[in-house]
Simulated scan of single mutants.
Amino acid sequence: MNLRLAVSALALAATAAPALAEEVNIYSYRQPELIQPLTDAFTEATGIKVNVAFLEKGMVERLQAEGSRSPADLIFTVDISRLAAAVDAGLTQPVDSEMLRANVPDAYHDPGGHWWGLTTRARIVYASKDRVDPSEVTTYEDLADPKWQGRICTRSGTHEYTVALVSAVIHHHGEEAAKAWLEGVKANLARKPQGNDRAQVKAIWSGECDISLGNTYYMGKMLEDAEQAEWANSVNVLFPTFEGAGTHVNISGVAMTKSAPNKDNALKMMEFLTSKEAQEIYAAANYEYPIAPGSEPVELVQGWGAFTADDVNLMTIASHSAAALRLVEEVDFDG
């Protein structure tokens, strides 16, 4: 009798217990407001709940500490260096999907499938409307020309955005030429490297310098702010290229963690993120460029002008990161 009662109790408990929810867990360096529209759209389309942990820093260290017990299925981040760091630390797994390969150009995903790009941003020149003729800025190489002496502002040489650009210079011209380029740009600085990309535009507006390096999306962000809109309206967005190549771009991207507990749901979300619908939602949230075939940036971004992106695979660029950082330190760029 006791055995029958115990079995009946277990059966009753099993039927009373709620079914485990379909879910996917994300560690994200991207701000919650940027990805909330995406997660809401994914849940509405699939019924799969999305749990997001926003991290300001330390994602690699957290995943390493959690090991195989990590709840994270996907990581969201910006900049190829951060994606490459997760791969190099052995924290991701390769993903092969016909949909991903169809939606993401070869230049914007890891050849081994460990990360996949979602949106791009160009590393461009902001130039004073009053003091710079747009025809004066055509190439990145030109930024080392003495004609710009005392006229350039930029953020720290050790920042990941600068390191990525220097890595691209190394790819196109080699380390020796990249070092000479860095020395030339440093000689043209109007002030010690400091602040973020918006701070450089403010410096142009205030007359401290005439041109600066920055990411395209900051123009959209500045125009949202009443005070910063005045800075933004004082500059033109110019798209320099490498000699014989295109404009340097970087990405936001996604990777599946090595220990993903909800692997099937994670793949569904990765595929959703590269769809035309999701791409345009994501790109619009941060004034970026979607990369799925047939997708378009918002009207404001289109208004900045068309450009041809450099087509080198970003993992190739990332392979030069250590050398780029070494060169930045050798020339004492921030000194």
Rank of each mutant, 00 (worst) to 15 (best):
L34Y: 11
W181V: 03
I251P: 00
P290Y: 07
V301S: 02
M59S: 05
I26L: 11
L10N: 06
P240T: 06
M219A: 10
D311G: 10
A102K: 14
N2T: 11
R30S: 11
N2H: 11
V95D: 01
E44D: 14
Y217C: 00
P240I: 03
V7R: 12
T77A: 12
V163C: 05
P37R: 08
R155H: 12
D310C: 08
A190C: 11
E160L: 10
M99C: 00
I317W: 11
V87K: 15
E141G: 11
I75R: 02
W231S: 03
L20G: 05
A17V: 08
E33W: 11
E22W: 00
D145K: 09
K49C: 01
M270G: 03
L5M: 09
T46G: 04
P297G: 04
I35Y: 04
Y218N: 13
Y27N: 07
P111W: 05
A13R: 09
S68Q: 13
Y27L: 11
A255V: 12
S167K: 03
L91C: 07
A187K: 10
I291C: 05
G150K: 05
L143C: 05
S234P: 03
N286M: 13
G214Y: 03
V104C: 06
V137I: 14
V104I: 12
E160C: 01
